[in-house]
């Protein structure tokens, strides 16, 4: 209905005039709360990925052969019903979509807030009081989502280029031998530092994100609300410990190639390394 109060010209003009509604359920994404839902739901998906990825990578502690087997398992998901790699690619596309939505909703929501907030520059995004503002509840995690997010994105691109495409390892990169690639890459101190910083950022991001997700989805019961913070802290802690163990233990020398049965330098052909690893696995039974 027409708003006679706003028609009177009193008060500010809308910052975001109401748009024509798209068909359901796209109309939900047109609204800020809808976008928060999308951000929360994709957050859940991404969080699931991060947890699974971390747990899967723990295979590295079982040695190069087991790690290679795990990598192969991912590629052959779906057994013989679908061509090799199909399911993995479907999962990857799903992940990319979730990332895309997560990032788009975050960015567009921040833009709405920025327009509503005086002196909110593109950097930082929060509104500015000339005399400063003294925060009470907002914590480091909540106020740095805007920073930890891009850090994670950049890290993600680096991580893929590093360990999936082998941009920096060059000739040293062995397709199908993640143990080798990982220990090669992380044994360099600067690389290890990048991984540590990025994973701290990830944990901080998850700490606020996981709690925030409950609020955004309206999962709230005053009786159990304390558990929401505990779950968020637990998840963040779990991921922090798991993911940091890789660079730290590599640097500590726990993950290295010294005692490897199928030493990479013994082979000329990548393929032979994999065969060796497979044979090793069979021997171990």
């Amino acid at each position: 209905m027409a708003q006679t109060l706003s028609r009177s010209g009193r008060g500010p003009q809308p910052l975001r005039p109401r748009k024509k509604q798209l068909p359901f359920p796209l109309n939900i994404y047109q609204t800020a709360i809808g976008r928060k839902w999308v951000m929360a739901l994709t957050g859940i998906g991404l969080l699931g990925f991060v947890v699974a990825h971390m747990i899967g990578n723990l295979h590295v502690y079982e040695g190069p052969a087991r790690m290679a087997e795990y990598a192969e398992t991912l590629r052959t998901l779906g057994g013989g019903l679908v061509p090799r790699g199909t399911i993995l690619w479907i999962l990857r596309l799903g992940l990319i979509a979730m990332f895309g939505l997560h990032i788009h909703s975050a960015y567009s929501l921040k833009e709405i807030s920025r327009k509503a907030s005086p002196k909110a520059g593109f950097v930082g995004g929060a509104k500015q009081y000339s005399g400063g503002q003294d925060f009470i509840a907002a914590n480091f995690a909540s106020r740095t989502m805007r920073w930890t997010g891009p850090i994670i994105l950049l890290y993600l691109l680096y991580h893929i280029a590093d360990l999936t495409w082998g941009w920096w390892l060059g000739d040293d990169f062995v397709h199908g031998d993640p143990y080798h690639n990982l220990s090669e890459s992380l044994s360099s101190l600067p690389v290890a530092i990048i991984y540590i910083v990025a994973n701290v950022a990830l944990a901080v991001h998850i700490f606020h994100g996981a709690w925030s997700m409950f609020q955004s989805l309206g999962i709230n019961n005053p009786k159990y609300n304390k558990a929401r913070v505990a779950i968020a802290a637990g998840l963040a802690g779990l991921i922090l410990v798991g993911n940091l163990s890789f660079p730290i233990l590599t640097q500590a020398g726990l993950i290295d190639e010294d005692n490897r049965e199928c030493a990479v330098e013994d082979f000329d052909d990548e393929h032979d390394i994999l065969i060796c690893l497979e044979e090793q696995l069979e021997e171990e039974g």
Partner: peptide, 12 residues
């Protein structure tokens, strides 16, 4: 009623 347009509200 303001919403319905039957009251013209003059604030301030």
């Amino acid at each position: 009623q303001v919403d319905a347009g039957t009251v013209e509200l003059h604030t301030r």
